[in-house]
Design a protein around this nucleic acid. Structure first.
Lengths: 203, 203, 203, 203
DNA sequence: AAGTAAACGAGACGGTACGTCATGTCTTCGG
DNA sequence: CCGAAGACATGACGTACCGTCTCGTTTACTT
């Protein structure tokens, strides 16, 4: 029925796949997103262009895959869970400071910006991103907040999704739009400010 | 001394300028950002390419200008100030709901996404954006919050910038990343959740 | 010692061979020579590309084979000999008119042009062509001329090869280069002129 | 009315044009016709591909132009006319031997073969060839034959076009198809045989 | 009013990258 | 173990735009 014979994944060359993902990530770091070309990735990976077009529908999808695959391997297994020392503010600050540090790391900055650019314009990729990257992370964050709520450190009726957005949204925004310096201090301020309201009223 | 003879702004053709800005905005809405080309804008505006390259340093700058100029004319004069009925929550919800509505309007969605894409990758443009669009708006928002703080509806030691980020960041994020539906209800939730902490403790 | 394991002809699939030859001839008629691809032939024949590469060294060789094999089957046995009614001019005109007709037949035109193109650029193929197609035909023609010479209808010292070239060359040329209409009348003229010579009869 | 805006010839860069024609001719001699690519010509000429596509509809047309332009400059002015010493046979042999020599010259062989290949498959190009190359040459040849006819060295009723075909066709054929060695002797034989005719002299 | 200088429309130029197609080689699988 | 199927590296195809560079042609501003 379909016009195009779908390629057979069982015949796929793992060597080529990894070379492409690695080259993509390397190149986006080297030359930046604007100058990132399929042509260049293919050349750097020692691969025919068709091999890229065969397996990825768009540059964004490739980038996302590169990101996911190669990042996913840094974690042996998965990031498991957020720290839970009982001190919610401290734990959140730890996490948010780490996020800030990562976003300031040039190795992560470029590829992440590239990925976000694609997401902004490609709803399909955005959906993929939401499901495969955002949601798992969000779940971990919500888990930590749930534990805090159970410990009475959070108002019982707080929507956890909104809480996550309140905590992490500002940092992501400041990074994307460069509306101000992205520092550990800012992270702390956001946590403090956000929490003051998330905490239950004192009698 | 300078390599490039600077063009003389006094001789600039207002007709060409407006045609270009209009064409840019129209085209980004029609064909989307990815397929937006200087070549196309020039053709649609009935203008030589050089006339664009003469006056704008980048596609992003042109887009930003188009955005600013043509949007700025909708406001007769300026947006003046945020509403101040004395009810902070209601006023913020009004503003945030309006923002949500605008972001959901297809006429604004495409050009805004385009602009944000450029901002993500062009620090110079980001600075321009921060100064000419973000900061004035932010000032209005802070003004309203300041008034609320004076009225005792906000904790005295709250950083107003962080407060603004907390209120508007989540909405912008959800729009850019499509991590969830962008509704008036969400706007209300964000305001309520953020405020609960921004308010002073009750005794 | 040899780099290439020679394929074993005894194991060759006759089905595949015929399918390929047929497909090649069909395709060159359908899409023309310029768009004829090994890829397309393999697909049309329901055969792997390697099966073609294994048995034919070049597209020209395949085409030639297709031509020879499938055309050779139209003749049950072989064309035997040229007509010999005793009237040399009439016999030659008959043959040349038939040639003209064949060259004007769209079914032969495309494949023959394709074959000639390859011959022009591939000396090996040209040699093959000379030996397997041109020479046998030429021999038949020379046989008829020899018979005429014995009958005193041809000058005794005429080189038969040159004679054949004089008779058939002009027609082939006009076909290949389209320098003029290829008609039966032209064929007759060539025969008459060649036989008579360009010089006036001496008294 | 037309879809495509035709390029303006008055703005054409003569430098680019000559570089392209020269590169085309050089390359076809170096790498042969089969490996001749527009890409390669553009690179060798130091020219963008589009500059070639803008001005020539096909590789064949470019080749033809290259041939015509650059060859036409060897002749200062034009080839004027064929020699006319009064001895028709000698004059024709001179011309035909020159033709043979040219066809055996590697510098001419490759480009000419390339051109002929294109002609075989491209009727438009064939027409162009007939009009701009074949016809002028043919006219010169016919002129010489006409002079001979007036001098009583040619039968009065000979069709001059057929005569030209008879004289030059065999040589061209032998060259294109390599059905035999292309020598001065062969040229002489063709002239003698054509002039004299195949039939024996009547007593 | 004539002269001049800059911005204008147009678009050719040398390039880069696109996404598709065909090449010829190599690997995997089923009969 | 051959042959089909098809993934692979390579590289040309023709197209779209890039940003630069002339070309005349307006359109102001001098003189």
């Amino acid at each position: 029925m379909s016009k195009k014979a779908a390629p057979d994944p069982s015949r796929r060359s793992e060597t080529a796949r990894r070379a492409i993902l690695t080259a993509a990530l390397d190149l986006v770091g080297e030359v930046g997103y604007a100058k990132l070309s399929i042509e260049g990735i293919a050349a750097a990976a020692g691969v025919g262009k068709q091999t890229i077009y065969r397996w990825w529908p768009s540059k964004g999808a490739l980038l996302f895959d590169a990101f996911l695959t190669l990042a996913g391997e840094g974690d042996d297994g998965q990031s498991a869970a957020l720290p839970d020392t009982g001190d919610l503010a401290a734990d959140l600050k730890l996490v948010l400071r780490a996020t800030v540090e990562e976003l300031n790391d040039p190795r992560y900055d470029q590829p992440m910006r590239a990925l976000h650019t694609e997401i902004v314009h490609d709803p399909a990729l955005a959906a993929d991103y939401a499901k495969r990257l955002d949601e798992p992370m969000r779940e971990l964050k919500k888990e930590r907040l749930r534990s805090a709520r159970d410990a009475g450190q959070l108002a019982a009726d707080v929507d956890l999704d909104v809480a996550v957005d309140l905590l992490f949204g500002p940092v992501l925004n400041r990074w994307l739009q460069r509306t101000g310096p992205l520092t550990a201090e800012y992270a702390d301020q956001v946590v403090d400010t956000a929490l003051r309201g998330l905490r239950p009223r004192e009698p």
